[in-house]
Design a protein around this nucleic acid. Structure first.
Length: 582
RNA sequence: GCGCCUGUAGCUCAACCGGACAGAGCAUCGGCCUUCUAAGCCGAGGGUUGCAGGUUCGAUUCCUGCCAGGCGCGCCA
């Protein structure tokens, strides 16, 4: 609907004589009016164009109005205020839109904004060193909802999870798994301060013991002999854990080490995968960091960097001159000891993404990684790629509350930490909805009590209840032995304020999808659905739908059937169920 | 110290590329179930958009400077 009006306007503007190209080329900004007295839509074209045309805004507005041809949907065009052009639609415009909505069904809201552009969306990508926590949950809900929003808006989206399965943290995990295994074998040992201490390693160690038996066992004395002191003994926890990792490798040999390493990785990764799948978050591809090394992509990238004028050897390490591309500091890509940094893998990974032919790359990162953005973009620029094709969306932290009380996020307190626990307590629907209720760049206060409450306070139930209520009305209709006949509906009778409000709200759905896609902001959709539910509930309380007059009854049923459709479509995009009864 | 983000009603947050009178929910107060689900509805009060300037027809939005909070500043990932 908005599209049609916008096209009509820009065509008229292009026809206006006595204006420069720059003025005619200005696309009209078309907005919904805030105040019904201003009609349905308003454009500020005359105000924006006036300075460039060297004419007064109101005068320009008059010229525009004179050049607007008649339009079947438009009832009146008026000039108001400093030079707004207000457009009032024919009531029938909304009735037509309602018919189109019902005909489109689950496709209603699918628009061509993205024009089939290919987008690669990478999100969560948490290190597979432990279960996902509530912070990852927000990234998961946001990423999955954004993927759906973009798909609905006409993009071809692929979702990807980058598995950080290389590097020091994974070695520490492997060593931690092995120590737990040794404990099960009967060895007595002191767990390292910097090891992974979580209980989730215990079943992994158990499985390892069940499958490998004692073949990986070494006496604790041999494991710890000659290691530097750990932190509790006045030593350095980092140096200690690195020595322990080296010892683990040495004693287990390549095959044994790989076995322990993979036991940890596979188990944790499949847990993450299941957790996300249960949360309605699925990926087209799980991309392994290790595969970059194995395929030679990493070495290839390093070679290109070495040969480029943008790196230099300094203190035995290979440095990338990031400062030449606007970063604060130069960055190491290959350490003095010959090992590539995480940054090196990340350059290779992003380069690979670019080469896979996407029009646009989107990375969703935790806000604590924001300092990392300039160096990645710098590296891509240095390697001749357009850094602008990559958008890094930073997602702020979620803070859990139980009522007024902040929930401690520390593992030790035994409070909520994992996404799995959160889902178990509040349910997937509430979790998905709450996570995307706020703008991603805003800190999120997540109230567990509210998310669980089955009341009007809870926006999830509020929206779902609207859907269930429509279903219930149709149930009643069937019980009374009547049926719904859209063709018999006399839509012209939908004239009450509640009906008008609902009609307008329904017509706004495609625009909401567009706004959410343009701004990568699924929260617009969540807010829209709440507003739509509100319009429906108000209507429900004010008027009876199942009236004797068949024309009116079917018209009202058309309207609420449309509301149900949009609620279902919108909730689907957010990954929230639309129950038929509650 | 430097860099990025955020300051909007008592609380949590919206405000589409700079638009018309800054909007919701919660909380507070007052009403509505013999009637399609009260997990609902109706009404009321509540604001110097952190502060001070600037840009212009117009600023919550853009610019500058302060103040407050968060995050980041590793040959970690």
């Amino acid at each position: 609907m908005k599209h049609a009006i916008a096209r009509w306007l820009s065509q008229a503007i292009a026809q206006i004589p006595d204006c420069g190209e720059d003025v005619r080329g200005l696309t009209a900004q078309l907005e919904r009016t805030r105040d019904a007295a201003h009609g349905d839509f308003a454009t500020n074209w005359a105000l924006v164009a006036a300075p460039r045309a060297g004419r007064k805004p109101r005068e320009l507005a008059e010229v525009l109005v004179r050049h607007l041809p008649a339009h079947p949907l438009v009832a009146a065009v008026t000039i108001a205020g400093p030079g707004f052009v207000n457009i009032r639609l024919e009531p029938d415009a909304y009735h037509q839109a309602l018919r189109e909505l019902l005909a489109a069904g689950e496709r209603y809201g699918q628009i061509d904004f993205g024009q089939g552009q290919r987008v690669l969306l990478e999100f969560v990508s948490a290190n597979p060193t432990g279960p996902l926590h509530v912070g990852h949950g927000r990234g998961a809900a946001y990423g999955a909802s954004l993927a759906n929003v973009l798909r609905t808006a006409g993009y071809r989206v692929e979702c990807e999870y980058y598995i950080n399965d290389a590097g020091r943290q994974m070695d520490i995990l492997a060593a931690s798994v092995w120590l737990r295994y040794l404990e099960l074998c009967g060895e007595t040992l002191t767990f390292p301060a910097n090891g992974y201490r979580g209980d989730y390693l215990l079943p992994i160690a158990h499985d390892l013991l069940a499958q490998a038996g004692m073949t990986l066992r070494h006496p604790a004395a041999a494991v710890f002999a000659g290691l530097p002191p750990d932190e509790p003994d006045g030593g350095d926890r980092e140096r200690y854990i690195d020595a322990l990792v080296a010892r683990t490798r040495e004693l287990l040999g390549e095959a044994g080490y790989a076995r322990v390493f993979n036991a940890g990785l596979d188990s944790i990764l499949s847990d993450i995968r299941d957790d996300l799948a249960e949360f309605g978050v699925t990926y087209d591809r799980w991309y392994s960091e290790r595969s970059l090394a194995m395929s030679g992509a990493l070495e290839g990238t390093l070679q290109t960097l070495r040969e480029s004028p943008h790196t230099e050897m300094r203190d035995g390490a290979l440095w990338f001159r990031a400062t030449a591309f606007g970063d604060e500091k130069d960055r190491v890509v290959v350490r003095e000891n010959g090992a590539p940094t995480y940054f090196a893998s990340d350059i290779a990974y992003h380069l690979d993404k670019y080469r896979r032919g996407f029009d646009r790359l989107i990375d969703i990162w935790g806000a604590d990684h924001h300092g990392y953005v300039p160096r990645v973009k710098a590296a891509l620029t240095a390697l001749g790629e357009e850094a602008d094709r990559l958008s890094v969306l930073l997602i702020q932290f979620a803070i859990l509350y139980r009522g007024k009380e902040k929930v401690s996020m520390s593992t030790r307190a035994g409070e909520f930490v994992t996404l799995r626990e959160l889902r178990a307590e509040v349910g997937n629907d509430a979790a998905r909805f709450f996570y995307v209720l706020r703008s991603h760049e805003q800190h999120l206060d997540f109230d567990l009590e509210l998310a669980k409450s089955q009341s009007a306070d809870n926006p999830v139930y509020y929206v779902q209840y609207a859907h269930a209520r429509v279903c219930s009305v149709f149930g009643q209709l069937a019980e009374r032995g009547a049926s719904f006949d859209a063709a018999a509906a006399d839509l012209a009778q939908l004239t009450s304020p509640h009906e008008t409000a609902l009609l307008v709200a329904l017509s706004r759905y495609p625009e909401t999808i567009e706004a959410a896609a343009r701004q990568c902001a699924p929260h617009h959709l969540a807010h829209y659905l709440r507003d739509l539910a509100q319009d429906f509930h108000a209507y429900y309380n004010a008027q009876t739908f199942l009236v004797p007059d068949a024309g009116l009854r079917n018209a009202r049923l058309c309207l609420i059937a449309a509301a149900r459709q949009v609620l279902r479509n919108g909730l689907g995009v957010l990954g929230v169920s639309a129950p038929e009864r509650m």
